[in-house]
Design a protein around this nucleic acid. Structure first.
Lengths: 229, 229
DNA sequence: GAGTTAATCAAATCTCAGTTTGATTATTCT
DNA sequence: AGAATAATCAAACTGAGATTTGATTAACTC
């Protein structure tokens, strides 16, 4: 149990960061600043290495702070990881561009997936580590995805995409394929015969995937499932 | 360094397992048998938990053997992991059904991905853990995927799939989407609003994905990439 | 059937990495 | 200014878990 007086959920939602006096704009100690630095470093490291291989020392170094501050501000490595998840979900929820068409959204997804600062790989790590338990995070995520399903369903009604497809399936397909360069970089290198996943490759792949998705609007005759052969 | 006389690459390719005398068909000690048991257990555990979270004790327990035998037969946890990779690649190479059409192959992939004995998730673990180095395993894998690309290209020529698509991209899309239920079970539960990835869900998803792929044969007008808007 | 080798096991060891402890200042409050 | 509190750090602690060590005995050879 932490004997040191940890802070824990400060800043009651809507208040100014600079707590009381503005103070020399170059403080050497600033809780918010260091927390932010730790979080930024953590996203990159967790995303790149996954929870288990991520080293607390590594995160601290990149953040330029003492390792102990991670325990101090986030209780533990796991606490830090959860915090990242929370922030990411909030970020996603508010920045998801609703005006683009499905194919275009997925292109965005491909680009985002390979940005180390955005941690698109975290989704895959979480899925692989998943144990099936139904905690708060899970409910939050479910609500979010249920919403996505609704949005896509409306678009199907509007004719943007053939409505014989199950929207949930389409989202899963788009999302997983969109993440592919980030999740399977080794396969990508082999398939595209290159020794690195370059920005050009990212664009090319995004374009191809978008095209696949687009081809679902003017869809082919939906072959009767099963029953033949 | 192992001071105990470890075996290492025995059985020179094409020889009978029962080394010399058939012996009582119920031996209590049998190297091949225990190795096989360890490998089977290892696939399940590594696939489910990933390398880092897999516990050597756990594998040994499932295999019903003493933990130390893992070091004895495979040198280390990592040695065991590599061995699994080798075997899996060999297995894939020889059992890939070439007669099915692309969509049907992918359906197979979906089913295989959720079978814990087949370890489809290993591909995702490997990708996430990937460091970009070009070792023997990588070359082996690359060759295999290059071959897949060729096969698909021929099928495109044969008209099975629109040849304006990049075969490498299509394979990556099919493979990543095919693995989605195994890699993102948490999202799947949220999207399909269920609390478990049931066999019915697997079939449903496989069907949907196959349909998406099928719709690429009679493809929509390939909108000119970029340049507009 | 005696001796050698291979297979197996239980317990000791060792290392890595996250967390705690116990100072040491910067900041802020009065 | 002086006291109180918050932020920071370096070093010690600890636990988990893979690997080693050192027996023990089944199986095979001659």
């Amino acid at each position: 149990m932490a004997t040191q007086h940890t802070p824990q959920d400060q800043e009651p939602a809507g208040r100014q960061r600079t707590r009381r006096s503005p103070a020399p704009h170059e403080r050497q100690r600033d809780a918010e600043r260091t927390k932010a630095r730790i979080l930024d470093a953590a996203v990159e490291v967790f995303s790149a290495k996954g929870f288990d291989r991520a080293r607390v020392t590594d995160i601290a170094e990149r953040a330029g702070v003492n390792q102990q501050l991670i325990s101090y501000y986030f209780n533990s490595k796991e606490g830090l990881y959860r915090e990242i998840g929370r922030r990411w979900r909030a970020y996603e929820a508010e920045t998801m561009p609703d005006d683009l068409d499905f194919a275009e959204q997925i292109k965005h997804g491909v680009r985002a997936s390979v940005d180390p600062r955005l941690g698109g790989r975290l989704l895959a790590w979480d899925g692989l580590y998943d144990t099936g338990e139904d905690d708060e995070e899970a409910r939050e995520r479910n609500a979010q995805f249920q919403h996505e399903v609704q949005v896509l369903r409306e678009r199907q009604r509007a004719g943007e995409i053939d409505d014989r497809f199950d929207p949930a399936a389409l989202i899963l397909i788009g999302l997983s394929a969109g993440n592919a360069l980030a999740v399977y970089p080794h396969l990508a290198r082999g398939l595209f015969d290159t020794d690195t996943v370059s920005p050009e490759l990212v664009e090319h792949y995004a374009e191809q995937l978008a095209q696949v998705i687009s081809s679902l609007s003017a869809v082919a005759p939906p072959r009767v499932p099963d029953s033949h052969k």
